[in-house]
């Protein structure tokens, strides 16, 4: 097994290939995105997996970027909040957050939106209770929770129950 203290990392972020040389293996995916790639939409609220502000999609699954060593993402595909919209056309979840006032300060919002987009793909929109439970990995101190549920429900194309 070949251990190294510096690594070459190739990964795809928002559809763009990146190759980073000389990467310290301690760098988390979150810090890589923010400090190396300057994709600061993904937020650091706790750095311990306790808030969800850092939620991104890794190979299509929502995960906490603060809990991942960047080096372990070799060859993987990452989508961040900056890559969710299709050009100028907002993702339906993004539009729904605006339409339903699903945020206030906006700091948790990138994480909420990424979580919600994945949740809809996962199919956890059977009821408001299910949405609430599956959105509980994202804290919002402004407490936009009811509006977030409305936004997710709307984006999932479901009428109010």
């Amino acid at each position: 097994m070949n251990f190294h203290d510096r690594h070459l990392l190739r990964l795809r972020v928002n559809g763009e290939d990146h190759s980073l040389s000389d990467l310290d293996p301690r760098v988390t995916l979150l810090d890589l995105l923010r400090e190396r790639l300057h994709l600061t939409g993904t937020k650091k609220g706790c750095n311990f997996g306790e808030c969800g502000a850092c939620t991104v999609h890794l190979d299509g699954r929502r995960v906490n970027a603060c809990m991942i060593l960047a080096v372990s993402c070799e060859g993987r595909e990452v989508t961040t909040i900056e890559g969710l919209a299709d050009g100028d056309a907002l993702h339906p979840v993004q539009q729904a957050f605006i339409d339903h006032d699903g945020f206030q300060c906006g700091f948790c919002t990138p994480g909420q939106v990424m979580s919600a987009a994945a949740l809809i793909e996962e199919g956890h929109t059977g009821s408001d209770a299910e949405i609430r439970e599956w959105m509980s990995g994202n804290l919002c101190r402004c407490s936009a929770y009811p509006q977030i549920v409305e936004a997710v429900r709307a984006a999932a194309g479901r009428a109010s129950q």
Partner: peptide, 10 residues
């Protein structure tokens, strides 16, 4: 909110 655009896109 007019700040929606910047807040939902990061």
């Amino acid at each position: 909110r007019p700040d929606g655009g910047v807040k939902v896109t990061g």
